[in-house]
Nucleic acid binder design. Structure first.
Lengths: 210, 210
DNA sequence: TAGATTGTTAATCGATTAACAATC
DNA sequence: TAGATTGTTAATCGATTAACAATC
């Protein structure tokens, strides 16, 4: 029914997670249906965009009345993989890495940080916020034994590419990278870059150019 | 000389910060010039894109030999506002907020976190990593007295819009928002959203749809 | 039936890439 | 001069928006 041939854009995917969040809120309020324009309004998006995004995943709407909230919520959960839990490893337990270990929201949304590793042997063997910290050498066995499918790189920029290579070698297909560089990985590996400095710098550009 | 009429895209601005970082590295190695294709290669970008981006800011290149690294570095620093320091306030001193206070890279790139505030009065009065923490009521005076121009919102999602409103009321024009929602602000205020959950969720979609 | 709202097509917009004359 | 590489134009691509017939 849904068109599996066309590639679904990252924008669409990202927004669809936002739709799902909103739908879950509405479902709790026992609201039955919502129109694309109402849903869009709540997220600062156009009605066209909402319909077009949702249409990528199936035929969920009803002319005249809109979308059934409970039904759409259920469908999207399945499609987006939110009916499962994914295990995550954090590589690098500096300030930012530790903060991620403590970030309980990840768990709530089905992404569980089950292990962390650090080069510094003084850090390994301990637990931080209930997450066990291991030495770097143990990375391959941890990924295998704990069934980990996502790696978060929070190491200094000079080590990031090596860590990425290691993760890929261990079979990781999804990487979230906080180091400020463009990682080279084979194109069956999905990388999401979060470059905090770059984001903040971009803001400062607007200040400098008022 | 440069075309100030056309709006420069966020993509261009963001990439130009990457060019500058790379140029600074090269300058330290005493390399004199670089071509758009070499620079692009280092950042996984096309030569066309590099030339087109740089062209937004001026006429820096020389046919046949490329760009003078030292000169371009100097020009871009000025244009991007990296010849100044910008003061930043962090609102919310939870795990993530504290990690940001400790994130020394910001200071290195000219973005100095000079204050933090938190609703929890138990946290105020202290210093975290050398950054003084104040109570929420003090926000307006801090922003004024410390000449702060950027606010980072790291509070729970339910308080984020209120904090944004408060920041805007205090004259803040640039906000980096870590809360998972779309902030409503007047359109002379620049907001940069960093939604860690959404980013990580997007990755999990790819796992679910292999 | 009349009103509302979908799914979808066509139009628009913006960003990226390719190509090449100009020029150092 | 010959080779390299720019700045720029034209072509392409993809995403967003507008519009509307279909339909509940």
């Amino acid at each position: 029914m849904n068109n599996e041939n066309r590639k679904i854009s990252e924008g669409t995917i990202s927004r669809t997670f936002a739709y799902l969040r909103e739908l879950s809120k509405l479902a709790k309020l026992n609201i039955r249906t919502i129109s694309s324009s109402e849903l869009g309004e709540r997220l600062n998006l156009s009605d066209s965009q909402v319909r077009r995004d949702l249409r990528c995943f199936g035929n969920f709407g009803t002319s005249g009345s809109g979308y059934d909230i409970k039904e759409l919520e259920k469908e999207l959960k399945g499609i987006l993989g939110k009916d499962k839990t994914w295990n995550v490893v954090v590589v690098g337990v500096g300030h930012l890495g530790s903060a991620l270990l403590a970030y309980s929201t990840f768990k709530k949304i089905g992404l569980e940080i089950v292990a962390a590793v650090d080069k510094d042997i003084k850090k390994s063997g301990k637990e931080i916020k209930g997450v066990p910290v291991y030495s770097s050498q143990e990375l391959p066995s941890i990924i295998k034994n704990k069934n980990i499918s996502i790696g978060i790189i929070v190491v200094p920029v000079d080590n990031a590419q090596d860590v990425a290579d290691e993760l890929v070698k261990c079979g990781i297909k999804c990487i979230m990278n906080f180091a400020p560089l463009s990682l080279n990985v084979s194109n069956n590996v999905k990388v999401k870059n979060v470059d905090l400095c770059r984001e903040l710098e971009t803001l400062s550009y607007f200040l400098a150019n008022k």
